[in-house]
Design a binder for these strands. Structure first.
Length: 112
DNA sequence: AACATGACAAGTT
DNA sequence: AAACTTGCCATGT
């Protein structure tokens, strides 16, 4: 990630991290926020995701809330979040990631 | 310029 | 344990 942590780069940083999520894995808003230095700035991450949806290179479907719930599925327009995740090899049940704990990808520990 | 809102999370009551 | 409150940062009104 860019060494610069300017407020304006928050989006860019989030996008970068999301882009680095391995296929078949998911992460959480909090994890990304913590990785960026603001462990409680998860809201911003969500906001960044909203912008990310308009970028085809940012797999926003791999970012869910801490419970593994697909809170942002309503923001997807063309393809539904579940389908995208299923296409990634992530099973979805009741709007929630199955085996969430196992597919969870923590940038802090796995990326550093 | 001030206040409200939003794909969240953690701490308190 | 469940509900409530506070923190976070950028955007929109």
């Amino acid at each position: 990630m860019p060494p610069k942590f300017d407020k304006t780069s928050f989006f860019a940083d989030v996008h970068d991290v999301v882009r680095l999520i391995p296929k078949g894995r998911v992460t959480t808003y909090g994890a990304i926020a913590a990785f960026l230095g603001s462990k409680r700035g998860a809201r911003m991450v969500g906001w960044a995701m909203n912008a990310a949806v308009f970028h085809d290179d940012v797999p926003a479907q791999r970012v869910v809330n801490r419970k593994g719930l697909l809170t942002g599925k309503h923001h997807f327009t063309e393809t539904s979040m579940e389908d995208l995740l299923k296409a990634d090899g992530v099973a979805i049940k009741d709007d929630q990631v199955v085996n969430f704990k196992e597919v969870f990808w923590n940038p802090l520990t796995e990326l550093e």
